[in-house]
């Protein structure tokens, strides 16, 4: 009987000691981690397009952190979904349109048509459109995220989304994509 008692006491004591140790360690050596929303935000493409239904990338990141669907980011496409799924250790949903390749586009103002209404400037989430009232506006191509938000407000429909042209510089070496050329001999 006393053996049993001793065993119980020792084990309880050990449990207590280690419990305290672990508790202490968890406080003392706490690793400061970015909140999940922060991490998700880093994965998002930052187009601030609102296609997910939230006013910007950060709010969507917070929504995902709180359990929203991870497939709502259209500009990020498959890659972003995969990364978020990986981060959150959740399976990649099947219903996401996985095979579409996102082609980067940028806005282009047909300058002849621009009446200088500044509506697009107000709409641009990243201040990538320049110009002032009654003056022609221009898109800073390098800053444009291709979010589409400026197209709608334009009263004269002078904004077009054009795909970023492939040049010899940003060519990605996809030789397989090159078909055999047929030439007249």
């Amino acid at each position: 009987m006393s053996f049993l008692l001793i065993a119980v006491i020792i084990l309880t004591g050990l449990g207590l000691v280690f419990g305290l140790l672990l508790g202490y360690a968890s406080i003392k050596f706490k690793v400061k981690e970015d909140p999940v929303a922060e991490k998700i935000d880093l994965l998002l493409p930052q187009t601030q397009c609102g296609q997910c239904g939230y006013p910007g990338c950060r709010p969507y990141a917070e929504a995902v952190a709180n359990g929203d669907d991870i497939t709502k980011c259209a500009p990020g496409g498959k890659a972003t979904i995969e990364q978020i799924a990986d981060l959150l250790s959740v399976p990649i949903p099947d219903n996401s349109n996985n095979d579409d390749i996102v082609i980067k586009k940028v806005a282009f103002i047909i300058e002849d048509d621009c009446i200088g209404c500044t509506k697009c400037i107000q709409a641009c989430p990243v201040d990538a459109i320049l110009g002032t009232t009654k003056q022609m506006h221009t898109v800073i191509i390098d800053e444009c995220t291709g979010c589409d938000l400026c197209v709608e407000p334009c009263p004269v429909d002078c904004i077009e989304m054009i795909p970023v042209a492939q040049t010899t510089k940003n060519w990605n070496w996809q030789l397989n994509a090159i078909p055999f050329k047929q030439l007249e001999s």
Binding site: P125, V126, D127, T145, W171, N172, W173
Partner: peptide, 28 residues
Amino acid sequence: YRVAKAEIRQTTEDKRQADRAKDRFEQR
């Protein structure tokens, strides 16, 4: 290697642009 290099360059560039866009959005 070439394809991988192109991918890495693209990813780096995308990341840079995303960071910039985020900054600009917040500034705005």
